[in-house]
């Protein structure tokens, strides 16, 4: 595969070139120190050097809120919302976030393939960018490298003064056509070191998790937790949702909408009649972590956590999923080596 060199100053030119072909979504500054994927209006606003965005590109395929159908109360009838393929370029995506999209492809495609998600996934082009692991990233521990190009159409690897640009698919190559870039001869740079590590690979974690249901870490974590659900809502592999009807003020009709939900919220398992099946925060903490390292992992052999560090970085209480998992590993090993 041919590699090109793109000077830092020419990133805007690349974005403009792409924007001329399809809508481009890329990281922008948001607030004081946050970043968010937004549609590019001015190529100069795009930020390629960012630690993480609050919501991964999942928000374009499974939006935080979406209308499933509109209904008419007089007619007692409905029409399904028109869902269109995204047909856009997602520019500046980190490898773990594409890994998360692939996991959602599995969950939403499995059993009953969901039209809304799969339709929006059509025509999505991914342009990746490498990143320097910060204090929260640990994707190396779940098998995702910051320079992992798999699944991307184009990948940008950060150098000191610019980027190595690789077209990895035909679509990527075509998008780069007409852009005059010099070839990149030298090799790729060394990747940055992670500051966070999970001690064991998933194959071993399966054994650890199987013995961790009654670990005291769940109750201890619950003491620090306010149950706000942030960890669920920022997780790029979470896809649980709730559905609610809203009636307009004229009381003539309304919409049936779905929005992201989270298993850390108490009402998540509540049924009419008052029963709540995961009543305690400790139960919900365990469920959240098992959703990432046990339940789907037992089925697929893969961790369902992509190591983005969001649940820890955005947790106001500073609860670290890496610390929880390592604590389970430590306790498991202690028991494993203790003679009976």
């Amino acid at each position: 595969m041919v590699q090109f060199f793109l000077e830092s100053e020419r990133v805007t030119e690349l974005v403009t070139h792409l924007k001329g072909q399809k809508p481009v979504f890329a990281p922008h500054r948001k607030g004081r120190k946050s970043f968010a994927f937004e549609r590019v209006e001015d190529a100069a606003d795009v930020v390629l050097d960012y630690p993480r965005v609050m919501h991964s590109i999942r928000k374009f395929f499974l939006p935080p809120r979406e209308t499933l159908m509109t209904f008419d109360l007089a007619e007692n009838d409905f029409s399904t919302a028109d869902v269109q393929p995204s047909d856009a370029i997602f520019f500046g995506v980190h490898s773990y976030d594409l890994g998360a999209v692939h996991r959602l492809d599995y969950n939403l495609g499995k059993g009953h393939p969901e039209k809304n998600y799969i339709t929006r996934r059509q025509g999505a082009v991914f342009v990746g960018v490498s990143f320097e692991p910060d204090a929260y990233h640990f994707c190396g521990s779940v098998g995702i490298d910051p320079m992992d190009t798999s699944g991307f159409d184009i990948f940008l690897t950060k150098l000191l003064d610019g980027y190595i640009v690789e077209a990895l698919t035909e679509v990527g190559e075509q998008l780069l056509n007409g852009l005059d870039l010099p070839a990149h001869e030298a090799g790729k740079p060394a990747r940055g070191n992670f500051q966070q590590h999970i001690y064991l690979p998933q194959a071993k974690l399966n054994e650890v998790m199987a013995k961790s249901y009654d670990n005291p870490v769940w109750a201890e974590t619950a003491e620090k937790c306010v149950g706000c659900g942030t960890c669920n809502l920022v997780c790029p592999t979470c896809y649980c949702f709730n559905v609610e009807d809203t009636v307009n003020i004229q009381a003539t009709g309304g919409t049936r909408d779905r929005h992201w939900d989270g298993c850390m919220l108490r009402e998540f398992t509540g049924v009419a009649g008052g029963e709540v099946f995961r009543e305690h925060l400790a139960d919900r903490q365990r469920h959240r972590v098992f959703r990432k390292f046990k339940y789907i992992s037992d089925e697929t052999g893969q961790p369902w956590c992509v190591g983005c560090g969001r649940c820890t970085a955005y947790c106001t209480a500073g609860i670290s999923i890496v610390n929880i998992v390592n604590r389970l590993v430590g306790d498991y090993e202690k028991v494993a080596v203790t003679p009976i």
Binding site: G31, M54, P64
Partner: peptide, 13 residues
């Protein structure tokens, strides 16, 4: 649930 949920759905910093 808490206000955090609504902030997250709006991607508020």
């Amino acid at each position: 649930h808490s206000v955090c949920v609504e902030c997250k759905l709006k991607e508020n910093e």
